[in-house]
Design a protein around this nucleic acid. Sequence first.
DNA 1: TTTTAGCACTCGATAGATAGGAGTGCTAAC
DNA 2: GTTAGCACTCCTATCTATCGAGTGCTAAAA
Lengths: 344, 344
Amino acid sequence: MLSNRQIQILHAIVDNYIRNAEPIGSRTISKREDIGYSSATIRNEMADLEELGFLEQPHTSAGRIPSQKGYRFYVDHILQPKQLTKEEISRIKLLFAEKYYAFEQITQQTAAILSGLTNYTSIVLGHEVKENLLKHIQMIPLNSTTAVAIIVTNTGKVENKTIQVPEGVPISEIERLVNFLNSKLVGMPLLEVKHRIYQEISNELQKVFDNYQRLIEMLEQAFHSHPEELVFLKGTTNIMMQPEFRDVDKVKDILEFLDTNEQLLKHFSSPTLGVQVKIGAENKEDAINNCSIISATYHVDGNPLGTIGIIGPTRMEYGKVISIVDYISKDLTRLLGKIYKNEP
Amino acid sequence: MLSNRQIQILHAIVDNYIRNAEPIGSRTISKREDIGYSSATIRNEMADLEELGFLEQPHTSAGRIPSQKGYRFYVDHILQPKQLTKEEISRIKLLFAEKYYAFEQITQQTAAILSGLTNYTSIVLGHEVKENLLKHIQMIPLNSTTAVAIIVTNTGKVENKTIQVPEGVPISEIERLVNFLNSKLVGMPLLEVKHRIYQEISNELQKVFDNYQRLIEMLEQAFHSHPEELVFLKGTTNIMMQPEFRDVDKVKDILEFLDTNEQLLKHFSSPTLGVQVKIGAENKEDAINNCSIISATYHVDGNPLGTIGIIGPTRMEYGKVISIVDYISKDLTRLLGKIYKNEP
DNA sequence: TTTTAGCACTCGATAGATAGGAGTGCTAAC
DNA sequence: GTTAGCACTCCTATCTATCGAGTGCTAAAA
């Protein structure tokens, strides 16, 4: 276990490095008012801390910087969450006080304020539609061969697809089909809908509709789920302001990681309670080995709907960012809860 | 006017610089098989070309590089469009052969193939909804206080918004309102709809519906148009592979420009016939002074719907990129025309 | 008149060499 | 246990010298 003095020194080093991005020497620390030891003493402690794996030395004659383990200890045991300022809170309140929104707008605004308040890159993952329930199906013919299929879920998510209408199917028949589907499928998890169409109601469909085969093809199109654009990023260029990312190749790797939605989604696949902090190589992907990600899941009615997060250098202002992510994820949960009360 | 030999030399310099990103000296050119002059002769011509403004010299003892004027002349008078390879054509064909799509998917796929084929950054601007006609309005209640308003246009574009339903308005009343609106507003340009609600049908609304005031508030929400997410980018990180953009600050400026949708939209505000090439400072914005943009507008029924484009360094493979942008914009126009035939 | 060979000159890029200084580790004294 | 002192390390910055690609000019050749 670390002694109090060691913790004090580690604290000072992490704080200092987060602020200045430069290795810290023993003299710098001994000069701090809250530390009453000579540089030689500090040096001894620093050597011990390095041996224990909490500090690193870029080269022999440089000061120390926190290692990943050091950051981890800092986050777990030293850090006290930083209170948001009045101004920050009022900016968030202002945003979430807006009355009506398209869904994408909420996520976009959330991403914007996250990166705005932190000066890092924000990530907002939209809703996991999978567990949503079907609320309504609609098909609107555009012309004799094309229609728009619209699927609405109980959380207000709207999906739409342009589909081909089989030759010789009159509009009235489509209306009848839509009514039929609504009566049979509403309230069902979206994931099961397709399955249900084939298994349970195909018989009935066949009885009631002449052009069964063609209609089923059309439905296939309508419910064909494509991997969704769920990811919103904001402030990607903030990364480049960090002194550790003045190198184009590093930045490129990170941006490529962020641009690949699949990777991002995989990274945030499991919802978590509270705020999660992943430091450096705790993120499996090589590209973001020098980054930390702070994230939290937001909910409606206890169901995780998506994730918000911040990505920045391991030298991140953990205290501030954790507070902001926590606050906003809770406010977002509150807002969504207000909008989509779980009524039948 | 430039002599044939001058054109030949300019051609060689531009080609060479596009390929290697390094200044070209007189000796390099005189060694080329298609040029039968000594380096001294080339030197004289190069000096003349520089005086005329077609070439530049990074410093005294370096070779020459094309100036903006040089690129312009190259694009306007020297360049012969490069035939797409069979493989390129088949990749495009494959993409556009897909039968059904959500609209966003078409734009996204287009962006993907543009950047995939060119190795530059692609920009696809979605549809200008303004001139679209209203095809259908729908409101789907989620619970007693919230509903989703869906607006479909004749081009298959679907907009949706979550709106607040005023207290005490029964579902049946909303249905009646939607039917009323559809009977009155369908076929009208989206831009005029709001105006029309207030001016022409407000009287009638007032007569037929009790909760006129509340309903009009709800409609205000539904038709409140927010600046739309119309921009799709792909391959933004390709910029960083260019040797002239190994500098984080330059990259940052460009990415910030691309991230600001308003700027992009402004830049592409006026539709053009055919492929447009903007070289270097011909782009007004400072951030992209060292970039060229190659763009083309795509249409449905003669109406410009959006723009596709490529942004890269001024040292761009103009021949190839122009051909690709041209080809894809035409194919996209063809595809959209097929999907959204202008039928009532 | 046009082209080319020859040559002095320019200037950025590269590689050592050197000095400076921040910081360390160790020892011995407090 | 703490600290002063000191030799040592090694990064950084600066300067210098060299190299060479490329130029412009002149004069000779075609």
